Amino acid sequence: MQTPTDTTTDTTLASATDIAPVGSSATPVRVTLLIGSNRTGRFGPVIAEWLLGRVRQHDGFEVEVVDVADADLPTTFATTPESTARLAGITPKLAAADAFIVLTPEYNHSYPAALKNLIDWHFHEWRAKPVALVSYGGVSGGLRAAEHLRQVFAELHAVTVRDTVSFHQAHAAFDETGHLKAPSAPNSAARVMLDQLAWWAQALREAKERRPYGG
């Protein structure tokens, strides 16, 4: 159970014992971190910087970043030379990824429209890959947005990992320099989530090498 001062997962930290840590493999796990808000004054980049630090300290990850605020996404769903060109900076990063981390705020009990637009412009890029969810918001910590995203990614044949990291009253959790005021619980929660992501990424990559996914 979270305390009012904690910013941690929606599970107890005791779940850290549920899965063994995953060490480095011969081939690093390629992770794409997707920053899902493009609102003016958004808080996402602050959390993303902390999250990138956690990913880079984890064994066996290589990380890329896709920020929807930097994406010139087509607004009309039609595959044309123009839409393909506008997606050229994003699609290769998704296609090359073994796994994803999606950072989302909660807007009106769900995730942002810009994030859904980016997700919907792709299909094969998500298939048979794991997705970790990091959310932030007010009292809810963005957990409703995260749960809605599980349904979306299930339809795209992706696997969302069980543990999340959620920041309740996110602005209050960080100081003016962008550092967590109480980092112990969020850091531990991130480690559990990243261990699960690494396990699923390696397992699914090895499975697809033996037999292409045909779902």
Rank of each mutant, 00 (worst) to 15 (best):
D6G: 15
D6V: 13
D10K: 12
T11G: 07
A14G: 15
T17E: 12
I19A: 08
A20Q: 10
V22D: 08
L33D: 04
L34Q: 05
G36D: 09
S37N: 09
S37E: 08
N38M: 10
N38T: 06
R39Y: 10
R39N: 08
G41K: 08
R42T: 14
R42H: 13
G44V: 03
W50V: 07
V55D: 11
Q57T: 14
F61H: 09
E64P: 08
V68L: 01
A69W: 02
A71S: 08
D72Y: 00
T79L: 13
T80K: 00
I90M: 13
L94W: 07
D98C: 01
E106S: 02
H109A: 13
Y111P: 11
A113Q: 05
A113F: 04
A113P: 02
L115D: 05
D120V: 03
D120S: 05
W121F: 03
K129T: 04
L133E: 03
L133F: 09
G137D: 00
G141A: 06
G141I: 03
A146E: 02
E147H: 11
E147F: 06
H148V: 08
L149Q: 03
L149S: 04
Q151M: 15
F153T: 06
A154L: 12
D163R: 15
V165M: 02
S166P: 02
F174Y: 07
L180R: 04
P183I: 10
P186R: 04
P186S: 05
S188L: 13
D195H: 02
D195G: 06
D195F: 01
L197Y: 03
W200N: 01
W200C: 05
Q202T: 13
R205V: 04
A207L: 04
E209Y: 11
R210P: 07
R211E: 03
P212M: 15
G214L: 15
G215L: 14
